[in-house]
Design a protein around this nucleic acid. Structure first.
Lengths: 182, 182
DNA sequence: CGGGTAAGCGGACACCTGTCCGCAAAGACG
DNA sequence: CGTCTTTGCGGACAGGTGTCCGCTTACCCG
């Protein structure tokens, strides 16, 4: 864990800036183009962000943080299940505007998973679920990973289908997460 | 809609045979290798099956048909919700053994969707849902496409996670599809 | 059976993602 | 300030998917 070299972190920043700029123009920018714009080689880009998703995760980090924070706020002001429902709405909002946020979320949690942690998003979801489980309104056997898996379909819907179905699907998932009453 | 040329359909068959053979050895065979084994060019393969998924859909057609048939059988012998639950089990079985069956299912329904039909799988799911909706046990606003979307995550779980979570996730989805009781 | 035409062939090619490795230069240390 | 180590650079390359287009050949028709 030695501190990073000066040029390395400078490059990292330049890559992120270039990625943000490039993605603003075209959501599915080629990694080549980003590297070129940042004035670094391909290898450099890939060393800093081993996969496209890692890069996205960092680019959208602010948005991801906002989602995490929203979970806390919602929990403070609503019943757990309602908080979860609202949080889903929030997720849908993000996913609609920038489809890639979902990919970022997914990749963020994935990356963290192998490190035996859930990562910030996972923790947020865990808090939401546990509150509901404590109140008895969320099924006890559901965990954050379940939720992440079930909502990542959002990133694969095209714009039209998203508009038609996203919230509806989230409602189904939400009902599935409630405590079975029968 | 002119009938296909003789060599064309012969090639189609050869490609399918080659694909089956190649996939039996290695589930993620390169399309190149399949084309080569079939003795046709890349272009030919891609013309017949524009994408990997289309090819898989055809390769696993028998399995897909079996799933479709299972829906009918289950409906005849069980309550609708139970039938759906059992059918989910069946899907999980297939998905576990051959991960690609799910991709095939997905692509099959996708391809059919653009043709404004649901395709065989979609129809099977529709029958299951409608029976439950008629009985009042499945939420009236759920349709086949919802189910397809929600269960295609199965194809993206790795073997370990599949074993841990697949059925559990299907149970959550199933509960979400029940009529909300509150 | 011979000629015309369009369907179909097949492989070269474009394009992306991700890897590898020889080289440069950053920073520690005397 | 010089030298050594070691981090980091960058671009060539491998490997894969899907496209394109000039040539072939099956099939219709006279």
């Amino acid at each position: 864990m030695t501190p990073p070299r000066a040029d390395a972190s400078a490059n990292r920043d330049r890559i992120l800036a270039a990625a943000r700029a490039e993605i603003a123009i075209n959501a599915e920018a080629k990694l080549n183009a980003i590297a070129q714009r940042a004035g670094v080689g391909q290898g450099t880009l890939y060393r800093h962000f081993p996969t496209r998703a890692h890069l996205l995760a960092e680019v959208y980090r602010t948005d991801v943080d906002e989602l995490v924070e929203a979970a806390t706020t919602l929990l403070a002001t609503h019943e757990p299940v309602t908080a979860l429902a609202r949080w889903f709405d929030r997720v849908a909002d993000y996913a609609q505007v920038k489809r890639d946020v979902m990919a970022a979320v997914e990749s963020a949690t994935w990356a963290d998973l192998s490190a035996h942690s859930h990562g910030p998003i996972g923790d947020a979801v865990t808090r939401l679920l546990q509150a509901g489980q404590f109140a008895g309104t969320i099924r006890p056997d559901a965990d954050a990973r379940d939720v992440i898996i079930l909502i990542t379909y959002l990133s694969r819907l095209d714009a039209e289908e998203f508009a038609d179905r996203a919230r509806h699907l989230l409602a189904i998932v939400l009902d599935g997460l409630r405590t079975p009453h029968r």
